[in-house]
Design a protein around this nucleic acid. Structure first.
Lengths: 109, 109
DNA sequence: TGCGTAGTTGCAGAATTCTTCAAGTCGGTT
DNA sequence: AACCGACTTGAAGAATTCTGCAACTACGCA
């Protein structure tokens, strides 16, 4: 194989590793949306958003199509939502673990 | 809150976005392992591995402890394995989609 | 106490990614 | 055809991340 599997995985995760791209994916979980809507909700320059969307597109995570003068984006597979959910869960566990540790440390002095 | 949630998420995904770190996590899915084992399986300089482990540790994704002269690492929560599984599934879907498209394109000429 | 193995940390140059600006494309509309 | 709105692309400097070397810490043991 040309690209080791673990490298493809790393690339995929890295593709998700950007605040704007995460927000886009979260918004797209509710269904397809035009760029203009994303732009209205994300506070980023149009050209920057386009760059981020292009990255997600190239990674195959989202797809785009035109609809009545607007360009729409959508998740390429609902599995993306599962990935985000798993991420959310870990984040929750890690943060509560930290809080737990913090509380433990505080109780000591 | 000081750090927006979507930024914390992005950071977590970015932390996973590196070939060495992915391999470490995959190895740790089978249970705790000493650094020396990871080193034997991953083909990376010791100092580099240490840097990557430090990143994972700071992100709260793994934990480390000492055991009989060796430093052991383990996943901080089994949820990490779920995240990797979700990633694997998406990668599979994206790749077969691409193959499908590729086949379609080839059938055309 | 002194040594050797096991890992870690600091750092600097190399490589990658981000952001923004300017210019360009693609479809509708008039 | 000319124009406009909605995006996209190219490119370059700024910012971040990666890698490897050298130095350092932590243990266990003679």
């Amino acid at each position: 194989m040309s690209v080791p599997l673990y490298q493809a995985k790393a690339e995929m995760f890295r593709t998700l590793g950007h605040p704007v791209r995460i927000r886009v994916l979260e918004l797209l979980q509710a269904g397809p949306r035009p760029v203009r809507d994303l732009l209205a909700e994300i506070d980023v320059e149009p050209s920057n958003l386009s760059q981020q969307l292009a990255l997600l597109r190239r990674a195959g995570i989202v797809v785009s199509f035109r609809q009545g003068g607007l360009v729409m984006y959508a998740l390429s597979t609902p599995a993306v939502a599962d990935l985000l959910a798993a991420g959310r869960r870990i984040l929750g566990e890690v943060l509560t673990d930290r809080d737990g540790l913090l509380a433990e440390l505080k109780a000591r002095d």
